[in-house]
Design a protein around this nucleic acid. Structure first.
Lengths: 193, 193
DNA sequence: ATATATACGGAGGAGTACTCCGTTTAACAA
DNA sequence: TTGTTAAACGGAGTACTCCTCCGTATATAT
């Protein structure tokens, strides 16, 4: 039990302001197509030096994770709400559709999902765990109710979804994404002839 | 119909040799983990100048596509064979499992699938079309036989599969990938209570 | 006012993708 | 064989990116 670091001073206001500016700029850029924006640009647009950016976010991945953290957490929080409103399987379906909606609304989830799901490493690890836990709850509830096969891996459903999320291009992609959700749900049910 | 360009000379042997060396080196590198290998390195290992590499493959993506072309084509060619050997639905299942096997054998499909499936643009466009056509045949045969719902989008199944392919890490990933194939098939069947 | 922990800025090191163009060479004809 | 020429080569150079380092500035606390 090492003791928690006791902050001897209140955090500096300019530091927090800059951090928020950076996040806002980065999110705006990512939301537009500019996923590959140079970090120098992010710093310039936020009105800070590049050194400041790197102090707040020690790597590009750290910045990306910070940007998406809010969105991913919101998605995770929706799970218990849906679970309370719907029967188990429908709650899961609704939650998976929420993914699709988020992507449709340019809520910038897709790249985060990819990072989360691909083996890139510790990146997104924390948000990822929350998300996985949410999926786990929904699935195990449905399994316990006897509606879903008991060999369903929640993470696999997420992975499959990430595959579709990968590209939000082409007309009708949204409806085809929702169709896939139905396929996944149907295929996960207990009663399959 | 513009006339086909009549080559006034036979292609130079050194050119073809170098092209093959480059492909071999790149494939070897990609097959190991070195996806981010510098193109300078590829050129050096192949014993050619960087200029030569860029003449043969005008961009990094062009090189990657060329490397995976062979594998993707082989996968596409397996489709009619499987269709001849199995009833429709089982042919589709077998083909989807083939994806998993390829990935498991470090056959380097996963990144190609991602590129194919993500909206990166024309990259992989050609190989992608072949693959899509193969999937289309398998699915529409099964649909015609009345075994699969008629609203199944072959490409969506591929996308979902790509999601799992994304990471071939963690113990037991292979079996969970095959389980997902079963889920997708089950969910695509006509008779769902 | 003074002290000091905290944060800032941006030049610069290191590395990569890709271009340009003078040089070399394989193919072919005489 | 030898000359001609289209095709291919090589690698220095350009442009750009990520990230580090460290001297300077400033918010907080006394």
């Amino acid at each position: 039990m090492t003791d928690v670091k006791k902050p001897r001073r209140r955090p500096r206001s300019d530091g927090q302001r800059n951090r928020e500016h950076l996040l806002a700029v980065a999110k705006a850029a990512f939301t537009m197509g500019e996923v590959d924006i140079a970090l120098d640009d992010v710093a310039r647009r936020a009105g800070v030096g590049i050194g400041t950016l790197y102090r707040h976010f020690p790597s590009r991945d750290a910045l990306i994770e910070a940007v998406y953290r809010v969105e991913l957490d919101r998605l995770a929080e929706a799970a218990p709400v849906l679970a309370a409103q719907h029967p188990p399987v429908e709650a899961l379906r609704a939650w998976m559709r929420l993914f699709v909606d988020y992507i449709a609304a340019k809520q910038v989830i897709a790249p985060a999902l990819n990072g989360l799901v691909s083996g890139t490493g510790a990146l997104y690890a924390q948000s990822g765990d929350i998300l996985k836990a949410a999926a786990n709850d929904l699935v195990s509830t449905a399994v316990a109710a006897g509606d879903l096969r008991d060999d369903i891996e929640p993470l696999d459903l997420l992975r499959a979804l990430a595959g579709v999320s990968n590209f939000a291009a082409g007309p009708g992609w949204e409806s085809s994404a929702k169709r896939l959700v139905d396929i996944l749900i149907a295929g996960s049910r207990t009663s399959v002839s």
